[in-house]
Amino acid sequence: AQVERVVDALGIDGDLLATMAALDLTESNINEFGRFDDLKDSVDKARAKAFFEQKEGKMLPLFKVNTRAAALLKKFILEGGFDIDE
């Protein structure tokens, strides 16, 4: 359910996120084989922008949306998932 919520919010590749979340990844190997870059590239910019703007209650430039999306994905994978609505 947590993976589905992230997929819905950011429009990313759910299979790739689920695969990465199941691996025992660390800060040093999260982007092995370019996996994390592929995941970041799969973000639907419009959906991510709408999600973060709704969450923060203000308009955000795209570079901030991209930064927040990457940070959220990295934290989600390294922590083994969490509820993004909290």
Rank of each mutant, 00 (worst) to 15 (best):
A1P: 12
Q2P: 10
V3D: 07
E4V: 13
E4F: 13
E4N: 15
E4W: 09
R5Y: 14
V6I: 06
V7C: 07
A9L: 00
A9M: 02
L10F: 05
L10Y: 06
G11C: 01
G11M: 02
I12Y: 01
I12P: 00
I12E: 02
D13P: 09
G14M: 03
L16D: 00
L17T: 00
A18Q: 09
A18V: 01
T19G: 06
T19C: 04
T19H: 10
M20R: 00
A21T: 14
A22H: 06
A22Y: 00
L23A: 14
L23P: 02
D24M: 08
L25G: 04
L25Q: 01
L25V: 03
T26M: 08
T26Y: 05
T26P: 08
E27R: 14
S28M: 03
S28L: 04
S28G: 00
N29W: 00
N29T: 05
N29K: 00
I30W: 04
I30G: 03
I30E: 02
I30F: 04
I30Q: 04
I30T: 05
I30Y: 03
N31P: 09
E32A: 11
E32W: 05
E32V: 09
F33D: 14
R35K: 10
R35W: 08
D37K: 15
D37Y: 13
D38E: 15
D38Y: 12
L39W: 08
L39C: 10
K40H: 08
K40Y: 10
D41I: 01
S42T: 05
S42K: 07
V43S: 01
V43F: 05
V43C: 02
D44T: 04
A46S: 11
R47A: 12
R47L: 13
A48K: 03
A48H: 04
K49V: 04
A50Q: 12
A50S: 12
F51P: 01
F52P: 07
F52V: 07
E53S: 06
Q54I: 07
Q54G: 14
K55T: 10
K55A: 06
K55D: 06
E56D: 12
E56G: 14
G57T: 13
G57R: 13
G57N: 12
G57A: 13
G57F: 12
M59S: 15
M59A: 15
M59H: 15
P61D: 10
L62K: 14
L62D: 15
L62H: 13
F63D: 10
F63C: 04
F63A: 03
F63Q: 08
K64Q: 11
K64H: 07
K64W: 04
N66V: 12
N66F: 09
N66P: 03
R68Y: 15
R68E: 14
R68M: 15
A69G: 01
A70I: 08
A70P: 11
A70G: 15
A71D: 13
A71W: 07
A71C: 09
L72Y: 07
L73W: 00
L73M: 04
K74E: 13
K74N: 09
K75P: 03
F76E: 02
F76R: 02
I77L: 05
I77S: 04
I77P: 04
L78Q: 05
L78W: 07
G80Y: 05
G80W: 03
G81W: 07
G81Y: 08
G81K: 08
D83E: 14
D83S: 11
D83G: 08
